[in-house]
């Protein structure tokens, strides 16, 4: 015993790691996929016909998979980031992802938050962009094999194995979409956490002007620009109306004058799991609607598959969102 303690500890640790890795719920394995997802979204040099840009409401609300069911053969990227903005930086990065020989369409997910100075720091994008080469290599090529070792917290662990509370699930897609939903589905809790988002952080007229200037410039260059306001809960819409300083109607008029096409997605029946973001089903519904409107405006042939065959289930998402 005394002579083998290092070896024994390693054998025991390996056994525990294998056992826990095998027995824990699959839903706890998201960290590696998430790392892969953001690194891929930020550092991939693939080019697309359509690029969506915006914040988390965009990357959770638009499913390129559902859109390509209708706009077949069109390559679509969801280039949204957490607390992302429509700053010059992000608009430029979105443009870089367009295939010059493709259809060249940019779709702006316009939320009040995406036009605020705090969002314009684009912290998540910068964090991902500034990753070192070794982190990029690790996240892109090793992460898909490391899901077995994905960490969790004791709180999540006990929620997963014991609690009856609704659990949040998410799936990461190569297209840049993050599908989110609750199991079992339930109404969102308090909206209170969002109340401070606009304190000292109202919509910036400078950012709005820049979006409109860029829309004009793109339109002149032959890039088609669409914009929509990602749907959210009525409580959130009300909160944003009161606190953000965002006037949708004025923005819409100016955007149209600048050459953009406003995509009206206001419909009843969208469901948010947290007052801000759409759940998976609603995101798919919204995406089909956006695809249909854009397709019609472009004169693209549209395909309307049966509802239940529209997009893969989250379980069908390949590891790492691939």
């Amino acid at each position: 015993m005394t002579r083998n303690r290092v070896f024994l500890a390693l054998v025991l640790a390996s056994t525990l790691i294998v056992l826990i890795g095998l027995l824990r719920p699959d839903a706890m394995r998201t960290v590696s996929r998430e790392k892969w997802f953001w690194t891929w979204k930020t550092h991939s040099d693939r080019k697309f016909d359509v690029v969506f840009v915006g914040d988390s409401r965009t990357y959770r609300g638009i499913s390129p998979e559902s859109m390509t069911d209708i706009l077949q053969g069109i390559r679509i990227l969801n280039f949204g980031y957490s607390s992302g903005s429509l700053s010059a930086l992000m608009l430029g990065e979105a443009e870089r992802r367009l295939d010059p020989a493709g259809r060249r369409i940019i779709v702006l997910g316009v939320t009040p938050s995406s036009l605020t100075p705090r969002a314009a720091r684009d912290e998540q994008y910068r964090q991902e962009k500034n990753r070192t080469s070794s982190e990029i290599i690790e996240n892109l090529y090793l992460s898909p094999f490391l899901t077995y070792f994905d960490p969790t917290t004791p709180i999540r662990f006990f929620e997963e194995i014991g609690s009856r509370k609704a659990r949040f699930r998410e799936a990461f897609y190569e297209s840049g979409w993050v599908a989110g939903w609750k199991e079992p589905a339930g109404p969102p809790g308090s909206i209170g956490v969002f109340a401070n988002d606009f304190t000292g952080n109202a919509v910036s007229p400078m950012l709005v002007d820049n979006v409109l200037r860029q829309t004009e410039a793109w339109t002149r260059e032959g890039i088609r620009v669409y914009a929509f306001r990602p749907p959210t809960s009525p409580e959130m819409t009300d909160l944003e109306k009161r606190l953000s300083g965002f006037d949708e109607e004025t923005f819409r008029q100016r955007f149209t004058r600048a050459g953009g096409v406003w995509v009206d997605v206001a419909r009843a029946g969208y469901r948010s799991y947290d007052h801000s973001h759409l759940d998976k089903e609603s995101a798919e519904t919204l995406s089909r609607l956006v695809a249909e409107i854009i397709g019609r405006s472009m004169g693209e042939p549209l395909v309307f598959p049966a509802q239940d065959s529209v997009s893969p289930s989250p379980g069908a998402a390949r590891p790492g969102g691939v």
């Binding site: 500890a9 390693l10 525990l16 790691i17 890795g21 070792f149 960490p151 917290t153 004791p154």
Partner: peptide, 12 residues
Amino acid sequence: VAVLITFSVFLR
């Protein structure tokens, strides 16, 4: 020590 290693993997 084995438990600390296991925690370092799964609770990091």
